[in-house]
């Protein structure tokens, strides 16, 4: 009888033993991002570098880049130019150390028939022999970095918030994985790590940041953060650099002479996605002509 009971208990505990990495005490005791002193942060970054090196055999460079003064990021995408080649999707995965299998991708490219903006008609699974196809246009959708982000409002533990440069970030160590934000986001921009992310060591991007692309653990949310590890160091995001058609534009909206300011001023910027719901995205779609 006792043996039976023990066997049953052992069986019910089985999933616990399948958890590969038990949180270290240091990680467990870590304070909230906004309460960390610079010294605390230095220690945390060092710990993360050690953890990544132990796991992948590559010593990363993990930084905690803060927003720059007088900078607010805005993204614009030229719908007349996008050909739907999906290079941005995979460049993003490579830059941001997303899980390859199962797949986590921040960008979805919707193939839409001409003459409608009904997102229900969009297909993101297209496997055409050749793009662009006649009669369709392509609309990549990713985190819109809203001024009024519904995902931030619903987070019960403040693990996600909007920074002064407009980027909504996640503290992966503070996230409890309740997925409320995923449900709240009208743009399907948030992704959940159902399993431990699988990243081949030779594809790991060692240029990391705390709020950006450091490897996530199982059970936390992640999403597009405009490549904070690049953009807060002055560089363009990865999806923009790889775009073969130059459809993607990015920059500082507070600088009146920046590319992005001129585009929003002079081009036919027709919409923010779902602008009727009042999220006021920092992501604009525009047309030539």
């Amino acid at each position: 009888m006792l043996a039976t009971g023990l066997a049953a208990v052992a069986a019910s505990l089985k999933p616990l033993f399948e958890m590969e990495d038990i949180t270290s005490a240091q990680q467990f005791m870590q304070k909230y991002y906004k309460e960390l002193t610079p010294e605390d942060m230095a220690k945390v970054l060092q710990r993360i570098e050690g953890e990544v090196e132990k796991e992948y055999g590559v010593r990363p460079h993990v930084r905690d880049l803060r927003p720059m003064d007088g900078v607010e990021f805005v993204y614009a995408l030229n719908l007349s130019r996008c050909i739907g080649c999906r290079k941005c999707v995979h460049a993003c995965v490579a830059e941001n150390n997303q899980s390859r299998s199962p797949e986590i991708q921040y960008i979805r490219v919707l193939k839409m028939p001409h003459g409608t903006f009904d997102l229900e008609k969009g297909d993101h699974n297209y496997a055409s022999e050749q793009v662009p196809e006649k009669g369709f246009f392509y609309m990549p959708v990713q985190c819109q970095q809203c001024h009024n982000p519904p995902c931030v409002k619903v987070c019960p533990v403040n693990a996600t918030w909007q920074e002064t440069d407009g980027i909504t970030v996640i503290d992966y160590n503070w996230c409890i994985g309740c997925r409320y934000c995923e449900a709240a986001c009208p743009y399907w921009a948030r992704r959940f790590n159902f399993t431990k992310p699988s990243i081949p060591a030779e594809r790991l991007n060692p240029n990391m940041s705390y709020l950006g692309n450091r490897p996530r653990s199982q059970g936390v949310m992640e999403k597009c953060h405009f490549c904070v590890q690049r953009t807060r160091a002055g560089r363009y995001p990865a999806c923009l650099e790889v775009c073969p058609t130059g459809s993607r534009k990015f920059g500082n909206i507070l600088d009146p002479n920046s590319e992005i300011s001129q585009i929003l001023r002079t081009k036919r910027v027709f919409m923010q996605l779902k602008e009727d719901i009042g999220t006021n995205p920092r992501f604009f779609y525009y047309f030539d002509v």
Partner: peptide, 25 residues
């Protein structure tokens, strides 16, 4: 050009079902 691979399903054959394409207007 040929587009890069699209998203895969988590389980099953990995084949994705396509939403029906609306006729071009």
């Amino acid at each position: 050009r040929k587009p890069a691979p699209g998203p895969h399903t988590l389980h099953g054959t990995g084949e994705v079902t396509h939403t029906p394409e609306s006729p071009s207007t």
